[in-house]
Structure formats: structure tokens, C-alpha cells
Amino acid sequence: MSKEKKEGKSRRELITMGSAFGLMGLAAAGTGGALFKYMFPVVSYGTPQKFLVPVADLPDVGDELIFEDMKVVLRRQTATEIAAISLVCTHLGCTVNRVETGFQCPCHGSQYDTDGLVVGGPAPKTLPWLEIKTVPGGQVEIDTATSLPEGTFFPVA
């Protein structure tokens, strides 16, 4: 067997082996990704993360509506602008109360102003503002898992 032939053969061997292992690696990576999705939750068995509110039930302009179960306050700034603010204290997760000056936490006395900015107490951060989506059928969907900067309003029809 001549040297060239031998080299050509070993190169072909190398390419075949390489592509085989490449494909296997690709499948393994895909399996890894699939297993990630396999483990990742797509539904919630507890309190759902998102909830729907019919547009007809939204508060009047300048008014607020508190959803105690979901720990959210829904505020209508203008006729076309609404916002949702989480009522979960950024300190240790108690539910804050709506008071005249803003929000107050019953656990460790954190105080927030009406926009959720910290004005006193141990709270480290502003109350999260939440994302609101318009969904078909005259409803809005509030996602309690989001955290947007204060003053994030969403349009409403």
C-alpha cells in the first residue's frame, strides 16, 4: 500500500469519524435542551402567575382596584392608560397595605409612596410594576411575575 493511498484512507476515516461524533454530539446537545424543557414548568398548579380582568371591570379614571388574591393593585391613570403595581413587599415578601400616603408593610414597617418608591423602612427596592397585555375578547392580562420600573403604563382601549 503506497503512502498516499494510506493517507487518503486515514483522512476519509477521520472525516467519517468526525461527522459521526459531530452528529452524536448534536443529538446529545439537543437532548440536553429537550431535558431542560422537560424540567421547566409551563403550567402552574398554585395561584396562576397571570390573571385576566375584563376591560369592563377596570377602575374609573383616577381610581384603583385591589386584587387581594393576586396581590396586585390596578390603577387607571387616564382613560387610555392603566398600570398594575405588585403589593408584595420588596423586603421579605409580606403583602403591603394601601394607605393614604402610598403603601405600608405591616411586617417591618417599610413605607412606599403612591408610585411604590421606598420612603422609609428596610425595603431595598421600589415595588415592582407589572406588565399588562391586552388579550382578545375585551380582557387584559396581568403578569405578576414581571418587574418593570415605576411609571410603566400600558394602553387600554
Binding site: 429537550a34 424543557k37 422537560y38 421547566f40 409551563v42
Partner: peptide, 9 residues
């Protein structure tokens, strides 16, 4: 249903 790839596994 909701578990991705669950049926396959």
C-alpha cells in the same frame, strides 16, 4: 400533555 417530551420519554 404539558410535560415537554414527557410522552416520548
Amino acid at each position: 400533555s404539558n410535560v415537554f417530551w414527557g410522552g416520548f420519554l
